[in-house]
Design a binder for these strands. Structure first.
Length: 583
RNA sequence: GCGCUCGUAGCUCAGAUGGAUAGAGUGUUGGCCUCCGAAGCCAAAGGUCGUGGGUUCGAUUCCCGCCGAGCGCGCCA
């Protein structure tokens, strides 16, 4: 419809130009938007305002001229000039009502489009270090990533969802060593746990498994473990202390034995995370191991490629990538003085590999604290000869967590956090998923645990679900009363009150709103849309009866109601929220 | 200090590419169930869109300064 109106205006402008009533070559960018108010018709265009200056005449006069030139078609009932020079289009009701039949016929596929034309797109999200269970801080990225993936799939992309497992690096060694130390305690050794170790109860659990399955196999006397280890905080340096302990674990246990402890911790936690996410309605297609990058030689390969293109130099014994040549604020080390590659080097290899796997577009969903990291990753892609614009990074702001009016801080290290699992068990899957996606991703957000816990009408997700349940309920009523509905052939012309017209219009814009949400990477647009739809429905419901004696009217209204419930279902499904038939 | 993301109703937030009278929810105050589910509806009140300039027919939106908030500026990951 939008396109038809667009064409009508373009045609009118062409004719005006040909008859020299307006200057030619105005290069009009025609804009047609859904009208905001029923009094302003269904669609509006501001062409007259944008062209007024170039055409050298008042906006209203130009608008009148355009309207006079627009050819009459039967899908448009009326065209008029309003305000400072807007052109408002009124769509014939028969045309707009046909959307109801479209919804009912297309069912779960209503709103789908082929916009993406099957292009391969990857969404990488969550990717939290497997050093502990996911906490509520990770939930927002999980919910947004999953919804975005659903949306992209819905508009015709082939989407792959990926979790980057940081299974190499210092944090994981700290975890492995933490587990080992707890294990030593279970063996009867008396260990002073490092202040910088992972203190959560799950570390005990993993240590217990290790002990149960291996008895004293990994046991070493504490005196030996602590020998020559530098002092812990507060008197000493806690970072140095933990690093010494890691080294001790590796030398005392030997490469192979240490690896067994390390891998048990890793595998257990990745499993925990996978299960938590699954219960949260989030399932990844690929769990990509950071360690596999070095195992497969991809890191060396990436550095070599940068070297070959002359973008690497040596200084202070380290190898630096000259990222400043590609817009970064300073050059970055890729290989340390001690010969080890940096995390950044892994990330270069990882992103190189993403594009080598054939994704035309790659979306990373990162916490906002990583924003400073973007320029260097893009710089590396450019240096390697990829188009860095095909990497999109969506930054998700942190959710501030409040409980009893106080902000709670979370730390995986100290073991003080509310897990994602706890949140879901507290507030339910639907409310949790909905809450996270409700707000624009780059918006800072306050997450009030008490409010989210309240299973009351305060929680906006129920508003949508209630609308759906109500419609299901009316259908049940019909069935109980032995009323058979013929919604498919209903005479939709009977839908004439303002509530019904507004609802029809709202239904018709679902496809474009979903597409906008997907293309703009803004899942919250779906929430806003559904809220508007539910609001219109509830108002209609309160103002009119559906089950009336007039069969024709009843069928028409039930057809509309069914279409509404279908769209609610489709929208909620995109967000991973259920559409219950009863509540 | 430099950079990124922000600042809209008492509170939590929408307002893409500049457009008509800046909108929801929540909270407050009043109404609405002999009738399909009141987890709902209707109405009222509530705003110098942080602030000061600029760009133009028109700025919450674009540009600059200032104030305020969060985050980032490692041979950590």
């Amino acid at each position: 419809m939008k396109q038809i109106i667009n064409d009508l205006i373009a045609q009118a402008l062409r004719e005006l130009e040909q008859s020299s009533q307006i200057p030619s070559e105005l290069g009009a960018h025609i804009q047609v938007t859904p009208a905001r108010d029923p009094g302003q018709g269904d669609f509006a265009s501001n062409v007259a305002l944008t062209l007024a200056k170039a055409a050298g005449m008042p906006p209203r006069a130009l608008a009148e001229l355009i309207v006079g030139q627009i050819s009459a078609i039967d899908t448009i009932e009326k065209v008029e000039v309003a305000g400072p020079g807007f052109i408002n289009f009124f769509v014939a009701s028969a045309t707009s009502h046909s959307i109801i039949r479209d919804v009912l016929e297309q069912g779960d596929d209503f709103g789908r489009s082929s916009h993406g034309q099957g292009g391969k797109i990857q969404v990488e999200y969550v990717s939290a270090n497997p050093t502990g269970p996911l906490h509520v801080g990770h939930g927002r990225g999980a919910a947004i990533g999953a919804t975005l993936a659903n949306l992209l799939n819905f508009v015709g992309y082939e989407v792959q969802q990926e979790y980057y497992v940081n299974d190499a690096g210092r944090q994981m060694h700290i975890l492995g060593t933490s587990v080992w130390l707890r294990y030593l305690e279970l063996c009867g050794e008396s260990v002073t746990f490092p202040s910088n170790g992972y203190q959560g109860d799950y570390v005990w659990d993993i240590a217990a498994t290790l002990h149960r399955e291996n008895d004293a196999r990994f046991q070493k006397p504490v005196a030996e473990v602590m020998a020559e280890v530098s002092e812990d905080a507060p008197a000493g340096d806690k970072e140095k202390h933990i690093d010494d302990l890691i080294e001790k674990a590796q030398t005392l246990l030997g490469e192979n034995e240490y690896r067994i402890v390390f891998d048990l911790a890793l595998v257990t936690l990745v499993d925990v995370i996978r299960n938590d996410l699954h219960a949260f309605g989030v399932d990844f297609d690929c769990w990509f191991s950071e360690r596999s990058l070095s195992d497969d030689g991809l890191i060396d390969q990436a550095i070599q490629r940068l070297q070959d293109s002359g973008n690497v130099y040596e200084q202070d014994g380290a190898q630096w990538f000259r990222s400043t040549d590609f817009g970064d604020e300073k050059d970055r080390v890729v290989r340390r003085e001690n010969g080890q590659t940096t995390y950044f080097a892994s990330d270069i290899a990882y992103h190189m590999n993403k594009f080598d796997r054939g994704f035309g577009r790659v979306i990373n969903i990162w916490g906002a604290d990583h924003h400073g990291y973007i320029p260097r990753v893009k710089a590396s892609l450019t240096a390697l000869g990829y188009d860095a614009d095909n990497l999109e990074v969506e930054l998700v702001q942190f959710a501030n967590l409040f409980e009893n009016g106080n902000k709670i801080s979370m730390s995986t290290r100290s073991g003080e956090f509310v897990t994602l699992r706890q949140l879901r068990e507290d507030v339910g899957l639907d409310a949790a998923r909905f809450f996270y996606v409700m707000r624009k991703t780059e918006q800072h957000m306050d997450f009030d645990l008490d409010l989210a816990r309240e299973q009351s009408n305060d929680n906006p997700v129920y508003y949508l679900q209630y609308a759906h349940a109500r419609i299901c309920s009316v259908r049940r009523q019909c069935a109980e009363k032995g009323i058979s509905l013929v919604t498919g052939e209903a005479n939709l012309e009977r839908l004439e009150n303002t509530h019904e017209q507004a609802l029809v219009k709202q239904l018709s814009i679902f496809p474009e709103r979903v597409e906008a949400a997907a293309l703009r990477r803004e899942p919250h647009l779906v929430v806003n849309y559904l809220r508007e739809l539910a609001n219109l429905f509830h108002s209609w419901y309160n103002a009119h009866q559906f089950i009336v004696d007039d069969v024709e009217l009843r069928d028409a209204r039930m057809a509309l109601a069914s279409a509404i419930s279908q769209v609610l279902r489709n929208g909620l499904k995109l967000m991973g929220v259920s559409a219950p038939e009863t509540m």
